[in-house]
Amino acid sequence: MNYEEVVKIGDSVGLHESHFLASFTWWQYVLYIGLFIVLSIICLWIGENFEFIGALGLAVLFSVMVIFLPIINAASKHSVVNEKNNKEIAEYKNKYGDNYINDLPVTKAEVFYIKIDAEAEVSGSLIFGTGSINSNLLTTMTVSYKLNGNGITETAKTTPNFDLVKGDTPYITYQELKKDLPHYQHGKYNFQIHLPENYSFTDIK
């Protein structure tokens, strides 16, 4: 599936909206209007025939019921709509977005400097591979690598893989989404640092 097809599908999910007035059915409109009229008549009758604080309190109670019943109803339906949107977006990512990113070309680059930098602040958009790994389990690291003859240094949350044999040169692999997808930001995904099993960090903060 190409980029345009994935975008088209993504643009069609998670679009359900919950408007206050649209959350009511016709019979609810009739019920609330009828209830408002009845309670208004009762309050007027109480006010004309009884002169005590309880009458005022009852009138306030009726008013609160008329106001908050529709608000509670609308809030409930808004929650249902949000859940439906989140479910659609999750299904889109699982079926289309993640698969598209996983099929992108893999970039490999030689690493010449790595530092664990636990005190560095990294925004969520810079977390490599967001969505594939729990960010709470990642380590903030500064990585310098060579790409197309240039040295590039980035600080991000990732996790090292000690999957190389002793003496091998450390390297990184990642897949780059160059343009935004619906519900995805452009950037590096599936970012992995590959290190020899005996590698030791020489600059740990």
Rank of each mutant, 00 (worst) to 15 (best):
Y3C: 02
Y3E: 03
V6T: 13
V7F: 03
D11S: 08
S18Y: 06
S23T: 01
S23N: 01
T25R: 09
Y32L: 12
I33V: 15
I33C: 09
G34R: 10
S40Q: 10
I46T: 04
G47W: 03
E48Y: 07
N49R: 09
F50D: 06
E51G: 06
E51N: 11
F52C: 06
L56H: 00
G57N: 02
G57A: 01
G57K: 01
V60S: 09
S63L: 11
V64D: 10
V64H: 02
V66F: 05
I67S: 07
L69Y: 03
P70F: 04
I71D: 00
K84C: 00
N85C: 02
N85D: 01
N86K: 08
I89K: 00
I89C: 07
Y92C: 11
K93N: 15
N94S: 13
N94P: 05
D98E: 09
I101D: 01
I101M: 05
P105R: 12
T107D: 01
E110K: 13
Y113T: 06
D117W: 03
E121K: 03
S123G: 12
S123E: 09
G124C: 06
T130M: 08
G131F: 00
I133L: 10
S135R: 13
L138A: 14
L138S: 10
T140Q: 10
T142V: 14
S144C: 12
K146S: 08
L147P: 02
L147I: 08
I152L: 07
I152E: 09
T153Q: 11
E154M: 08
T155A: 09
K157R: 13
T158I: 03
T159N: 10
T159L: 04
P160N: 07
N161V: 14
F162A: 13
L164M: 14
K166S: 14
D168C: 02
D168G: 03
P170E: 02
T173R: 07
E176S: 13
K179Q: 14
D180C: 14
P182D: 06
N190E: 07
N190T: 14
Q192L: 12
I193L: 13
Y199R: 02
T202M: 11
I204R: 12
